[in-house]
Amino acid sequence: MLETENLGKTYPTGDEALRDVSVTIDGREVVAMIGPSGAGKSTFVRCINRLVEPTTGRVLLDDRELTGLGEDELRNARRDIGMVFQEYNLIERLTVMENVLSGRLGYVSNWAALRRNFPPEDVERAYELLDLVGLDDMEDKRVDELSGGQRQRVGIARAVVQEPKIVLADEPTSSLDPETSRDVMELLTDIAVRRDVPVLINIHEVDLAEQYADRILGLHGGELVFDGPAADLTEESKGVIYRGEEPPESATAVGGGEPTDVETADRRADREPLPAED
């Protein structure tokens, strides 16, 4: 179970990217986090495994507090969090198998890692996952020979081979075409069920979020303005998330989306969604 309590991040430049975000994610939930570019979605997932250091609040994974852990403990904690990236973040010059096995690095010694000497059960697990994501017989291909969709499958296999307690996906479909995007979303939801882990997906395509997620979180200006089942996402709540409109009395949105001076910029971002944030 993942919990964040009043998580906030202010960058050294003074930009407050995230303010007081408290959520609990449990079970085998597929949670989609939506919001305009610059709303803090990427900052939020990166604060969970502290690729970005949060400035306020706490992150708890199975009641263990991740914020405040020392370097070694943090590395151990990261083994329990699988992460999938927008730009795949694979090691381009290494093979598919080396990339998948790199998800097990937290469990092997430096010397074994150097010699690519992973335990047989890790290798077996990696093979099974390559079959699952549809990359059988590709283990010895170099990643830079693969297509975008194939790369993202390797990225997913690398995250899942960790046997994580939660999978984070930061805009996993933004570099892919619509067809491949749906394949990747299907794969991620499938993994939540098969592996019995929650999956948190940052995504800016609202239709994909509604189609695949059980639950939706909406961020606007760094604040959580919506948290509810995908079915409850109405036009009004989209207005709150994307344009910072005042929520109507009956809306399920949490908190208030006070109009800010960046509102006009957000409107523009809404019409022409940028492929990447931050």
Binding site: M83, N89, I91, E92, G106, N110, A113
Partner: peptide, 26 residues
């Protein structure tokens, strides 16, 4: 490309492993 290093870091790799997997291949 620091993204490749970040990808390895996220899995809980040690600084030496980051070097061997994230930097050396590049």
């Amino acid at each position: 490309d620091f993204g490749q290093v970040e990808g390895v870091r996220a899995s809980g790799a040690s600084p030496f492993q980051l070097l061997v997997y994230g930097i050396v291949p590049q």
